[in-house]
Amino acid sequence: MNDLIVKLISRLLIPFIQLYGIYIILHGHLSFGGGFSGGALVGSSLMLYAIIFGLKESEKKLPHSVSQFIESFGVLAYIIIGFIGMILVGSFLSNKSAGFSLGEFGTLFSAGMIPLLTLAIGIKVASTMITLLQRLLKEDSHD
């Protein structure tokens, strides 16, 4: 898409969309939304970039192989966090009993491992959305 207005406005918008997405991911254990909705916001900002500036520019910022790697890494992180509880206490995904600090209720650093899990989910969802779009665009250009 070769339109000056669209490019300028999207450049202005993308940081704010990403900031809002990261805010929702980090406050997943405190307020509405969480890993999935925040990750979808971050992913949609990446998709906006890919649609407006084209597949080549988007691959420069985030190559397909890297986004595929991050995608697997998100779920792996979730599993590994779950295994910590399993090794220490003997129950998969244990939170307080496995020694994660619950912190003070209502603050950002609280609820033990749940923020880490929402972060992992957010990474997974954001990278999945951009991987899907890149794959669809590639299919279109190849065969």
């Binding site: 595929q68 790697f69 995608e71 697997s72 779920v75 792996l76 599993i79 998969f92």
Partner: peptide
């Protein structure tokens, strides 16, 4: 848990 997670784990490793 190990039995359920092992296939998921390998599904994530295979693309890498």
């Amino acid at each position: 848990v190990l039995i359920v997670l092992l296939p998921l784990f390998s599904a994530l490793i295979i693309p890498l």
